[in-house]
Simulated assay, not measured.
Amino acid sequence: MSDDALFEGAPGAGEVVKAIRPLKNDPSRCAVVVGRRKEATLDRSQVESLGLCVGAAWTAELAERVHEAAGLLKAKRDALRALSMRARSRGQIIESLMRKGHGRTTAEAAADHMTSIGLLDDRAYAEMAVRDELARKPAGRMLLVSKLAQKKIGRELAEEVVAAALAERDGESDAIELAKRRARTFDSRLSSDAARRRLFAYLARRGFDPQLCRRGVEAALGRGER
């Protein structure tokens, strides 16, 4: 059984906290022992905030508070493991923790903690995601906002970050560059009308508005024949 495991037994009459033992592999955490069972693993700050001490009566109220604290500690550790693999948004961390069985309240509290210590920053994450997408290939506002929504970034922040990123670019030049690049991949046997429809649809999928799509198509294929 791992040190993070919880053994939630119903409080028995007259039970007390028998021991609070630092873990051998991590002295910053302690095992809370009641009777012959380990009830939970807490960090030292949680032990202090709960006022836990050897000999304390193990009541139903104390058991609930300890188990909630232990659940939060495990959620924080799960969040740290997830963030050590790659950057994520607050919403993604909450979603990940809930998939692991943590309740929403616990998951949100763990995410708040990660934010407070600087390991979660939705604005920085959104800015990085937009930079990466634009470095891969030009894109318009609608696609970028949609991509951020998929990453659980709130709409207001997504719109703000995308607007700031696109303010530094020329949308028409981006649409034209992408249109010309895409048009070069078309089969020469494709009719002019079909090529124009496909190119317009492609630019629209990349998030450009209809006006920029038309300008891109005209620049790449001309106003009439390819």
Results as ranks from 00 to 15, higher is better:
Gly154Met: 13
Leu42Cys: 01
Leu143Cys: 10
Met85Gly: 06
Phe7His: 11
Asp43Trp: 14
Asp121Val: 02
Arg206Pro: 04
Leu166Ser: 02
Ser192Val: 07
Arg123Trp: 11
Glu68Trp: 14
Gly101Cys: 05
Ile117Phe: 08
Arg90Val: 11
Leu83Val: 06
Met98Trp: 04
Ala201Thr: 11
Arg141Trp: 07
Val145Phe: 01
Lys137Val: 09
Arg214Cys: 15
Ala70Trp: 07
Asp43Ala: 07
Asp122Leu: 01
Arg65Asn: 06
Val161Trp: 06
Lys24Ser: 13
Val17Tyr: 06
Ser188Pro: 12
Asp170Ala: 09
Ser96Tyr: 07
Gly35Phe: 01
Ala13Asn: 14
Glu64Leu: 06
Asp121Thr: 02
Gly216Gln: 10
Asp112Asn: 06
Ala40Ser: 09
Leu6Asp: 09
Asp3Ser: 14
Val16Tyr: 00
Val130Pro: 04
Leu157Cys: 09
Glu68His: 11
Ala5Asn: 10
Asp174Leu: 15
Pro22Trp: 03
Val33His: 08
Tyr125Ile: 13
Leu62Pro: 03
Asn25Pro: 02
Ser49Gly: 05
Ser96Glu: 05
Arg184Asn: 15
Ser116Phe: 01
Val162His: 03
Val17Glu: 13
Arg155Asn: 08
Leu143Ala: 14
Ala57Arg: 14
Gly222Arg: 10
Lys74Asn: 12
Ser188Tyr: 06
Leu23Val: 04
Leu221His: 00
Asp112Gly: 05
Ala56Asp: 11
Val33Ile: 15
Ala163Lys: 01
Asp78Leu: 10
Glu95Met: 05
Ala124Ile: 07
Leu6Ile: 15
Arg44Cys: 04
Gly71Arg: 07
Tyr125Leu: 07
Lys137Glu: 07
Asp4Thr: 15
Asp43Tyr: 07
Glu177His: 10
Arg215Val: 04
Gly51Pro: 01
Leu221Ser: 03
Gly14Pro: 02
Val32Glu: 13
Phe200Leu: 10
Gly222Ser: 12
Ala13Ile: 09
Tyr125Lys: 00
Gly140Ala: 01
Leu83Trp: 07
Ala57Cys: 09
Phe200Asp: 05
Ala165Gly: 05
Ser192Met: 09
Asp132Ala: 15
